[in-house]
Amino acid sequence: MSQTRTIVIECLRFHPETDEAPYYQSYEVPFTEEMSVLEGLQYIKDHLDGTLTFRWSCRMAICGSCGCMVNDEPVLSCQTFLRDYHPARIRVEPLAHFPILRDLAIDQTDFLAKLESVHPYLIPSTGDDPGDQPRHQTPDQVQDYLGYAQCINCLLCYAACPQYGLNDAFTGPAALALLHRYNADSRDAGKDQRMEVINAEEGVWGCTLVGECSEVCPKHVDPARAINQNKIASTQDYFLRFLKPRGRR
C-alpha cells in the first residue's frame, strides 16, 4: 500500500445565497500516490466539508464534467494527480471565463446555445437516403473528421481562450471545432447552413490564434487548427459569392 502524505487544497468557494463574492478556503487532504485532484475534492466532500460543490461523473476523462482550474491551468481533475504538486499547495478554481454557479460548478448555458448554433449533426443532402444500407466512407474520409469528433465538451478550451474571456460573443473553440467536424464529414451536406456562423465576426474571425485551446485539450481535438482552416473557407466564401448568380448568395 502506498504511503499517505498530506497536501493543502485551496478551493474557490461561492454560494450565491450567502456570499457576495467568491473566497478561498483551504483544506488539508491526506493523499496516496494514485489519488487525483478529483479524489482529493471527494475526500473534502466526504470527510471535511460536505458543502463543497463540484461536478464529476466518469472519473476516466470521458464525460468531460470535472474540468476546473488547477493553479491557473484548465485541466480535467480526474486525470490530474496530487503527487505532481506535492509538497506545494494547489489552488482549485472553477473554469475561467464562465459565470460561477456554486463553488467549482460553472454555468454552461452560453456554450450550449453556441453548440446548438453550429448544427452539430449530420445534415444529408435531399434525396440522399441509403435506406437500410450503411453509408460507406473510405479510411481517408474518416480521418478528415475523426480527430474533431473526439470532443467531450469539457470546456477546458474556453477556459484557456482569452478571446472568449474578453468577449463571450465569440463562438469559441469547441463549438467551432465541432462545426468543422460535421463540415469535414463526407456524409454531410450542411455546409451552407453553418457558413453564417463561420463568417460572423464572432465566428472564426473572433479567433486570433492564441493557440492555447489546442494545448489544453485532453482529447487532442486541435480546435485552433479547425478554426484557422475555416478562415480560409470563409475568405473563399466571401470572394466566391460575387461570382455566384444572383439569388444564390
Binding site: F14, P22, E73, A96, F98, P99, I100, P162, G211
Partner: peptide
Amino acid sequence: TYTRGMQRWWLRRPSYRFY
C-alpha cells in the same frame, strides 16, 4: 452567478505573454 473579470489576464499564463 458570479463572473470573474479579465484583469491582468496576460499574467495568468506564460503563453499569453508570448502571444
